[in-house]
Write a protein that binds this DNA or RNA. Structure first.
Lengths: 219, 219
DNA sequence: TTGTCCTATATTATCGATAATTTTTCTGCG
DNA sequence: CGCAGAAAAATTATCGATAATATAGGACAA
């Protein structure tokens, strides 16, 4: 046995972690069935923890589940992806608009610092043609905006949509030139730096509108 | 077509339904412990379905859960309630704003019909001083707006916030005169009827701003 | 052949019992 | 007293086995 440390993690959590890993790194692809007893046997546990882990992944949006039939890795379709992007837009625009009242130059500085760091990382990713890296920096950029609202509920909502975007969004973004994706962001930071949060919100809307125009090309 | 579908509800679902009922109608109040075996014995099932139901309620936000300790009915604080209202606002404003493009008089008619029905119900509730009824109609009103966006993901997000508002929101709304609550809504419908969705969005923002001014008085 | 019923099989759903963990209570010592 | 530390109690977490359910495939009649 591993014996690295005192395993304080419940079996459910360990199983969950393993399954998520397999999904994000592609060992399990959309459509694959996940059978409780099979996984249990493979990991050396009983059915119960696996079952709980699967249920958890279900609510996280990683998998679909049909009663008495089973679970399979979720296959996102364009509609769901589009919907997720809309919710992201709604939340982010609201967060940016909220900055207007609270945010003078001083208070916004931490946010700007983070965003600028993201911009740099995005540039690097573009230069290296690394779409994975770009997506990662992109996610950090947008999450930072929501996070800065201080509304943790909003952050959880945003996070709950990350899966869709992470798994399938990359495909959509692959249809856009990386440079184009990057260029959507600096203006937003620029507007924020000048305390023009209203403009920043509008630019964010533009950002999503632009992405939308590329959706049709990713089939 | 036939809609009966042979009611074959799993035990988990039945337990879940019962527990939710108890929470919303106050048999179980925030802070109450929910013990797996106790509930199981009481309902004549084994631990497993109860456990699953509890986990489900956990992700729905009804209860808190600490590993190896147990579950208790969640005790919402003002911050969380405030946050939930903000997310609602973000989503609803987005939904209304989206009507601009798609909604001519014809297409919006179904939505208007529902909203007007809600207004009527709200008036009745105000006349009878029934805050529960008012809250219910209020919820239907706002949900209808989100629903009409056609974005099911957005609806689920909105639904996931309903609990907070349902359980604690009533207290906040109790601090407002019922009539005042009602009066926030007709202007929104009016603006929509005239295809002035931009105005409707602004009125919605006002709506939430007004509610916020009453928050401080509910302690 | 085709469609229906039935059986076989695979898988989930539930059960009762046990192990693991946390919290509480008790006990002896300073 | 007060408090560290150990037994006890309470509760969750996990297990192995069984029941319930759904799907696939085959036999059989038309």
């Amino acid at each position: 046995m591993a014996t690295t440390k005192v395993v304080r993690k419940s079996l459910k959590d360990q199983v969950k972690k393993i399954l998520i890993e397999r999904i994000v790194e592609g060992t399990l692809v959309p459509g694959d069935r996940i059978k409780e007893l099979q996984v249990a046997k493979e990991l050396g546990t009983s059915q119960a923890p696996v079952r709980e882990a699967i249920r958890c992944l279900e609510t996280l949006g990683y998998i679909d589940h049909i009663p008495h039939v089973g679970a399979m890795v979720k296959n996102f379709n364009r509609r769901e992806l589009e919907e997720a992007y809309q919710v992201r837009e709604a939340v982010e625009v609201f967060a940016v608009a909220g900055l207007e009242e609270t945010c003078d130059e001083e208070a916004c500085a931490p946010l700007l610092a983070v965003l600028e760091r993201c911009l740099t990382d995005m540039q690097t990713a573009v230069a290296q043609r690394e779409i994975q890296l770009l997506t990662k920096a992109d996610n950090r950029f947008h999450r930072a905006i929501v996070e800065f609202s201080g509304n943790t509920t909003m952050v959880s909502v945003w996070d709950s949509l990350k899966i869709q975007v992470q798994v399938v969004g990359t495909l959509v973004e692959a249809a856009m030139p990386l440079q184009t994706i990057y260029e959507l962001h600096p203006p937003i930071v620029g507007a924020l730096r000048q305390q023009r949060s209203r403009d920043a919100a509008a630019l964010l809307t533009d950002h999503y509108r632009t992405i939308k125009t590329f959706w049709g090309r990713s089939d």
